[in-house]
Nucleic acid binder design. Structure first.
Lengths: 131, 131
DNA sequence: TTTGACTCTATAGTATACTTTAGGGTTTAA
DNA sequence: TTAAACCCTAAAGTATACTATAGAGTCAAA
């Protein structure tokens, strides 16, 4: 798959794909005879993961680490991987908790603060977070 | 409360606090006679919210919008607030879904891939996301 | 065969969110 | 009273993550 096709598939700019390659998030793909990049189909899944991880606040560096998780005899032991995934799981649980708090505050505003037609009550997210 | 004390309380750099003020995330506080900033206690809550929202991938601009939610006769109608909170709720639900996916992939790696002592199975996050 | 759409590299520019520096005044404890 | 610790503004610098530009080659259809 050429770069323009991949870009369309995952809705990411062509330059951004080349940038991700330069940053090591995307393996260097094979090249066609003319020098054009030729991506395997798996690139789509990889980029969709990158998009998801970015959305929830992971940096490219962190995403690179997540993508690098592997248990191989030579590179990473099970214990190393277990330690790393535990740290990341803790981070993710924290993120989910923060999101849940913000969510319930927004929900409170959405349902109760704007109950009537003419409610002029001040209703801020900080107030909604209280109690 | 002076800026240094506030900075310690919320574990945010002094310069960052002044930067947030310049960006409109923090109201300009009263000044002491000597010109020093004098923050009300509520600033702590506000900054803790900013930290949480940042952690889960909201930009400062978005956080500013969340903090600006208010139902007042003159500025925002209930309908406007309802529309805005709905959009943000959708975004947050999406973020929670993405996080849940990443979480279960990590959990799968954490529990099953590293089951034995000598498992040399390749176990990547992308593989864990499949099926 | 030429023109429009595609690709390439290399490099410069931009937006966001800080972070540091420069140069100064203020407070407080020894 | 002086030195460390604090505060001020203004402006420059940095890291991250793109985004655009320049200048070139490739390909497919009219």
């Amino acid at each position: 798959m050429k770069i323009g096709q991949l870009a369309k598939n995952v809705d990411i700019d062509i330059q951004t794909l080349r940038y991700y390659e330069s940053q090591g998030l995307l393996n260097e793909p094979n090249r066609l005879e003319n020098g054009y990049r030729d991506y395997p189909i798996e690139s789509i899944q990889r980029l969709q993961f990158i998009k998801k991880a970015k959305l929830v606040g992971f940096t490219l560096k962190e995403i690179k680490e997540l993508l690098a998780i592997q248990v191989t005899k030579d590179e990473h032991t099970c214990q190393e991987v277990k330690n790393f995934t535990q740290v990341k799981l803790d981070e993710i649980n924290q993120k989910i908790n923060e999101l849940s708090e913000i969510k319930s505050a927004l929900q409170k505003i959405h349902t109760s603060c704007c109950g009537g037609n003419e409610t002029a009550a001040h209703c801020s997210i900080l107030q909604a977070l209280e109690n």
